[in-house]
Design a protein around this nucleic acid. Structure first.
Lengths: 203, 203
DNA sequence: GTCTATACTAAGATAGAC
DNA sequence: GTCTATCTTAGTATAGAC
């Protein structure tokens, strides 16, 4: 990490501290200190108009990263095996949730009305993940009612998110020990439901 | 609601405001005003030593309520039909999450280290719900490895929690329109998995 | 761009009259 | 137990020297 700009360091440290302590509980002084500036000097304000503007910059940076990661999903289409593809899809969904865990942690702690940008970023993430799983399910059970596929997609993503939400309260990304067990059961459960829907179609 | 004590009103209003705005974003002045005391008077401090003590009292009150609700689960044991029992169990789990939504909302917004009592209350709730679903599953598939039952129990509860977590960011308890669809799919998915585990036992 | 110093505001908590 | 008034601390943000 050679020669990052002060502005960049401020965003990085601010988002880290927001994630650990919450937005309002993190002071400008702390952020300045963490970024290597003199704590208490208003040096931060030469880069950002306000604390809110700093948060907005952090959100935008995360959104940029999110866009840069698009179209990875195509990588594991076409294995031809429902169970194998679903396993990879589950792993992928979990990794996305981990990439976004900082933003999710911050969003979870801020009252919804306080930052529309943050609320929107969170909603867009989940809408995307719901749709991703639902689309994949539809590919394997084309005659499924769109509503059923959407609900099952939401259920699958919600389960993974719920799994992370407990650890999301803490700052540490959580050990992956039991992750594999969970993911195995997740795959088996969804696969079982999808299989039964493929035969009893129209549902 | 006749003649509630000032102390009781303070706890009620404080927990409501903590849930809506977060703990640190809610001021003593606001709480006093909401409870019908003169805003800015230290009148609150005749009932509670500090803001933290007020939160603790709110948590304890919720824990008391939780204990008072125990042993309802026995009500829907013994219908004899897996699908029917699971539907009722799902509805019950959702209702518990709704009863606890205020506390969960508050807990989600407070850094974990700031209130061990709150973190513990949250963990105890989920441990209880995980075990409740896992036990029921074990009743229908006795030969299941305890670990598998536990994982599937966690998955089921996590899915319901994830479903509520989106709405949990907001203060409103969320309309129940799509709840039935979700619960129907939840039941079908878990039932499908349990059925398959009953036959391919030992797993 | 970063520093020292400080203005301004709001919060948690206390003292003492009634 | 509740009030008015106030102490103390901490946070956001700004001004001006370097």
């Amino acid at each position: 990490m050679p020669a990052t700009s002060t502005r960049e360091r401020l965003v990085t440290e601010a988002m880290r501290l927001f994630g650990e302590q919450g937005y309002s509980a993190t002071s400008i002084v702390q952020i300045e200190a963490a970024a290597g500036l003199a704590p208490g000097s208003g040096a931060l304000y030469h880069h950002f108009k306000s604390k809110q503007a700093l948060l907005d910059a952090g959100i935008d940076r995360q959104l940029d990263r999110r866009h840069a990661m698009r179209d990875i999903r195509a990588l594991f289409a076409g294995l031809g095996d429902l169970h194998a593809e679903l396993t990879m899809l589950g792993r992928y969904l979990l990794s996305v949730l981990d990439d976004e865990s900082q933003l999710l942690r911050i969003a979870a702690r801020i009252p919804a009305h306080q930052s529309a940008r943050l609320t929107d970023a969170r909603a867009a993430l989940f809408d995307g993940l719901y749709a991703e799983l639902a689309d994949w399910i539809t590919g394997w059970a084309p005659d499924l009612k769109p509503e059923t596929a959407a609900t099952l997609g939401a259920l699958g993503v919600d389960a993974l998110h719920g799994r992370r939400a407990a650890g999301t309260a803490f700052a540490t990304p959580q050990p992956g020990t039991a992750d594999e067990h969970y993911l195995t059961e997740w795959t088996a459960t969804l696969a079982s439901r999808i299989e039964s829907l493929r035969h009893g179609d129209g549902q």
